[in-house]
Design a protein around this nucleic acid. Structure first.
Length: 288
DNA sequence: ACTCAGGTATTAC
DNA sequence: GTAATACCTGAG
């Protein structure tokens, strides 16, 4: 396949670091020139930014413009969302200022499910390493610019992988979860196509929770960061617990803060944009 | 040696 | 229902 290129001029909300380092994805890596290269679906892309241009180039299965518009969520007005959230309070305003270039990617549902199962009680460098090894071993190779890249393996491609083989890849205790969930999806115990079409968020959430290795936090990340794109969910991890306690609850021991209390505050303050608010707060608290 | 990291499943009240 | 506990692995 030959290289394609696509340039966007004068887009407001789009900062490479904010998008790729805000914690929603695992397969984008910063290059020496400050650009980022990553794999999504069957595409390998490099994204760079000049003063007022975003340049996408790489190997793309379909039309690059179409792929980029979908994946980078370009048809959503983030300026409007940020304005709305900024009015809520000074904390939101400050965190949005910090992560002003964030866009929430439309990541493949299957890949997002597996990636976030792997993320459980794990750290980012290791999560990324596991996903790369998994892709290299079971995904499809794409050559570009003298480098080899690998697509994220499909459920079909993982069909015959054993728990033992997962363990050897460094999955740790998540090996069995990956195995079980892959087969639940292959056997249509949970139907991802149906899920994609289902407008009932709570129903979809229940189905996600039935998957092995998917608890409340992982389910909410999948709902928010995949093509399911539900902005009303509020994934609560250690960082969100921390920042919510710091800003709104002020408990001496953040680990003892009740999850229900956090959810209540999130819903009251942020409503159907809670997921976005979560992302700004998370990124700000972790990085700033 | 020991703690910690984008939690979940299991077990025990 | 809710609380405690174990859990791969590797970096600091």
């Amino acid at each position: 396949m030959k290289e394609q290129k696509y340039i966007i001029k004068n887009i407001k909300t789009f900062e490479l670091k904010d998008i790729f380092d805000c914690g929603q994805c695992f397969r984008w890596n910063e290059q020496e020139d400050g650009s980022y290269t990553g794999v999504f679906e069957e595409n390998v892309l490099n994204v760079s930014k000049t003063n007022n241009e975003i340049i996408f180039k790489g190997i793309c299965k379909e039309d690059i413009k179409k792929a980029v518009e979908k994946y980078f969520d370009l048809n959503r007005n983030y300026e409007e969302i940020k304005n709305k959230l900024s009015k809520i309070d000074e904390n939101m305003k400050k965190s949005i200022e910090y992560g002003k270039g964030i866009r929430i990617l439309n990541q493949d549902l299957w890949e997002t499910i597996i990636s976030f199962i792997i993320s459980a009680n794990n750290n980012i460098p290791r999560i990324k390493g596991i996903i790369e090894r998994l892709s290299k071993k079971y995904g499809k190779e794409i050559d570009w610019n003298g480098n080899k890249y690998y697509t994220f393996p499909t459920a079909e491609e993982l069909k015959d992988v054993t728990v033992q083989e997962y363990r050897e890849l460094g999955l740790g205790f998540r090996d069995i979860r990956l195995y079980e969930t892959t087969h639940m999806i292959l056997d249509k115990k949970v139907n991802l196509e149906e899920m994609q079409k289902n407008p009932n968020t709570m129903e979809v959430r229940e189905q996600l929770l039935s998957l092995s290795g998917v608890g409340p936090k992982v389910a909410d990340c999948i709902l928010l960061f995949s093509t399911l794109k539900r902005f009303e969910v509020f994934p609560i991890d250690v960082w969100v617990r921390r920042v919510m306690n710091d800003l709104y609850i002020h408990n001496q021991d953040e680990t003892k803060v009740n999850k229900k209390e956090i959810e209540k505050i999130a819903k009251e303050k942020f409503g159907d944009l809670a997921g976005l608010a979560q992302q700004y707060l998370f990124y700000w608290r972790r990085e700033a």
